[in-house]
């Protein structure tokens, strides 16, 4: 992928406290989060974040609470000001934007979905979805037409005149997504968008998002603390710990080659069969006889079902119609065992 990344973070630092600027030398001097808090009463929110987010991909930023992930996403539209660093969107430095430039950026190039939905309780679902166009001062007919279109697309046709409080959590978040889609921006920021929903509805919403993404190819930055969710959605996965990036890359790669014990612990509880896909485990074509054909993007769970547990099977892997490799069921079973943490 040679094209310019849609969003680039370059050496972004965020320090919370009364004099964040003056703390930068300490941080550059290698002072950690705890020392900074103990000695200078400043909280190191983010340190040296360098992330490239490609157009048309879902970049998932994952971390536990307090890891700085929500702080990070708010830097992209400058709801929070970084202490140091560059934030480039299509090559433009967001930090150099004037107030009106920033507002235009928020109105036209980025939209956001919130964990607690953050809908306007006194407006109808339709008016909520139309909010971004309303802010831009478009005429009411266009607003309502666009909003109704996207509400219909997220499965809320017929609810236009209800109020948010009359809807369930999952439906409210659909309104939140419709609101972001109505803004028709290239970039969508999703801050723990599905964390407040119960598991079944969460799965529905994830599927909805993937479906929409296949159709619209937006640049989505998705924040979550749920690794299953992260692995399901991510094209590019960034793992944050204590405000620093511990590992980033393709999610399957992270799962198979965790960079440090922290991530090993993290990934050890995962249902690997569901997350890992054939392409991550397959080998080069060598066998003569195959038990059957599978697709490159099938997950291992479906293979186990297909083989009915017979580990002697070898499957041919197809990308569409062309054979690209083979999958030995023995490799598959090995891949299911997480690499034991080096400490253990």
């Amino acid at each position: 992928m040679t094209q310019e990344p849609k969003v680039r973070l370059r050496g972004v630092y965020k320090i919370f406290g009364s004099e964040p600027e003056s703390m930068m030398p300490h941080v550059h001097g290698g002072m950690g989060k705890e020392e900074l808090l103990a000695e200078h009463k400043h909280v190191l929110g983010l340190q040296d974040i360098n992330v490239d987010m490609q157009a048309g991909e879902i970049t998932v930023v994952m971390g536990l609470s307090g890891s700085g992930k929500s702080t990070l996403i708010r830097h992209l539209n400058r709801l929070i000001e970084p202490t140091a660093g560059e934030i480039l969107i299509d090559g433009d430095d967001v930090m150099k934007q004037s107030e009106s430039g920033l507002r235009a950026l928020r109105q036209e190039r980025m939209s956001m979905v919130f964990q607690k939905f953050a809908l306007l309780p006194h407006r109808t679902v339709l008016q909520n979805a139309a909010m971004s166009l309303n802010v831009r001062g478009m005429d009411v007919q266009t607003q309502e037409k666009e909003a109704a279109k996207w509400l219909d697309r997220v499965g809320l046709g017929g609810y236009e005149n209800r109020y948010p409080s009359q809807l369930s959590g999952g439906m409210q978040q659909r309104v939140g997504i419709a609101r972001a889609l109505t803004a028709n921006t290239d970039i969508m920021l999703m801050d723990e968008a599905f964390s407040a929903l119960d598991p079944l509805i969460r799965t529905d919403m994830q599927n909805l998002l993937l479906e929409l993404q296949a159709e619209l190819q937006k640049t989505i930055i998705f924040i979550t603390h749920d690794l299953d969710e992260a692995l399901k959605l991510a094209d590019h996965l960034v793992i944050l710990k204590d405000g620093a990036v511990v590992q980033q890359g393709e999610p399957q790669g992270i799962l198979l080659n965790p960079a440090d014990p922290y991530i090993e612990d993290f990934v050890s509880d995962i249902n690997r069969a569901r997350v890992l896909r054939v392409k991550s485990v397959m080998g080069a074509l060598s066998a003569k006889k195959f038990s059957g054909d599978v697709q490159l993007t099938d997950n291992l769970e479906s293979l186990i079902a297909l083989s009915e547990g017979d580990t002697s099977n070898i499957y041919r892997v197809l990308d569409g119609e062309t054979p690209v490799g083979q999958l030995d069921m023995r490799d598959l079973v090995k891949a299911l065992v997480p690499r034991i943490s080096s400490a253990a």
């Binding site: 709801l79 928020r106 980025m110």
Partner: peptide
């Protein structure tokens, strides 16, 4: 007024 709603208003570029 709910901080989240205010944040949403900011995020969508309200004056």
């Amino acid at each position: 007024v709910d901080k989240d709603v205010i944040e949403a208003a900011d995020a969508f570029g309200m004056t």
